[in-house]
Simulated scan of single mutants.
Amino acid sequence: MDGIWIEISVITKSEALEPITGIFYGLNCPNIAIEDPDDLLLREQGPLTWDFADINILEHKGNAAVIKAYFSQDDKVEEIVEYVKEKLIEIKELGFDIGEGIVEVKKMHEEDWANNWKQYYKPVKITDKIVIKPIWEEYEKTAEELIIELDPGMAFGTGTHETTRMCIKALDKYVKPNTTVFDIGCGSGILSIAAAKLGAKHVVGVDLDPVAVDSSNQNISYNDLNNIEVLEGNLLDVVDGKADIVVANIIAEIICVLTADVKKALNDGGIFITSGIIHDRVDMVKEKFEECGFEVIEINKDGEWNCIVAKSIG
């Protein structure tokens, strides 16, 4: 792991997190981490982030919130930084308290990440059945537990983030024997593995990021599963056939783009499990579901995040 990424950080206040995060999404950067002192959690937002506590940064930033976005060395970083600074001024003029509004840039080695975050990642029980266990940790399982062996590496999805937990709980409820599951934006493969462990007959994971595809395949091998297929590609473009369940732990805007295609990819009465939806985006997703022929059957909340479960109708 000798790759180098450029980390652009914005030091701000909690109330400005959403619009500032939107700056980076507008730059088509899905690799975002958010440190929010209001919930003391480093939130996962993309395939290069994890939910470990970055203690040193939190100490020297005090009560500030920090948004970190990761770019490759090939990106025009100087232009990106200037663009971000311009957008921060606009956000401040809109009335948001952006705090210090400082933009910082530094290089990050993948090796440094790999060595630092593991100390914060321990076995966690998600449901009565499902336990997520890092491959380097010991854990004594009970007869009823299903263990997911995981090394997320550089891919999104350790199982400790609220959105991931809610998706696993929904899979636990809706996966039945002989179920086919599509996992869109599979990241580390955690949801695909959970579906397979819960009894799905066939699982297809899809991710645009080749790092995530490699991570998924590696984690599948740790769990000795032979019924999961992982594809590299954009959303449902590379998936053939139909599923009984589609799960997508991404963001509300992408879920809305994806919904019409999911409708076509589901069997009659199929279930669409979605998360990564903040409170302010719930109505937007619900309206899109209704427009595309889905009935919302569950909305679960954990912290500031929502997991919406919908059923294909008509």
Rank of each mutant, 00 (worst) to 15 (best):
L94H: 07
F96C: 00
F96R: 00
F96Y: 15
F96W: 14
G101L: 11
I102K: 12
V103C: 03
V103D: 03
V105L: 07
K107Y: 12
M108V: 15
D112C: 00
D112R: 07
W113D: 13
W117E: 02
K118P: 02
K118T: 02
Y121V: 02
P123N: 05
P123E: 00
P123Q: 01
V124C: 04
I126H: 06
T127M: 12
T127A: 13
D128T: 09
V131N: 11
V131K: 12
I132W: 11
P134V: 04
E137H: 06
E138V: 03
E140P: 06
K141H: 07
T142Y: 10
A143P: 00
A143Y: 07
E144R: 14
E144Y: 15
L146P: 01
L146F: 14
I147C: 09
I148H: 06
E149T: 00
P152L: 06
G153M: 13
G153W: 14
M154P: 01
A155H: 07
A155N: 06
F156L: 09
F156D: 07
F156I: 10
G159I: 05
G159T: 05
T160W: 08
E162G: 01
E162R: 03
T164H: 05
T164A: 07
R165L: 06
R165F: 02
M166A: 08
C167D: 11
K169Q: 15
K169V: 04
A170N: 02
A170P: 01
L171M: 09
D172K: 10
V175G: 09
V175W: 12
V175D: 05
K176Q: 14
K176P: 04
K176W: 00
K176Y: 08
K176C: 01
P177D: 15
N178H: 15
N178S: 14
T179R: 11
T180M: 10
T180H: 05
V181Y: 12
D183A: 13
D183F: 09
I184Y: 01
G185F: 01
S188Q: 03
S188N: 04
A194K: 02
A195E: 13
A196Y: 12
A196G: 06
K197N: 04
K201I: 00
K201R: 14
H202P: 00
H202I: 00
H202M: 10
H202W: 11
V203F: 09
G205M: 11
V206R: 03
V206Q: 04
V206A: 04
D207L: 08
D209Q: 08
P210I: 08
P210F: 07
V211F: 07
V213T: 03
V213S: 05
D214V: 06
S215W: 12
S216Q: 03
Q218C: 05
I220T: 10
I220Q: 10
S221L: 13
Y222F: 15
Y222R: 15
Y222E: 13
D224E: 15
D224V: 11
L225P: 07
L225W: 14
L225H: 12
N226G: 13
N227R: 03
N227L: 10
E229G: 05
E229N: 13
E229D: 14
V230D: 04
E232M: 13
G233V: 04
N234T: 05
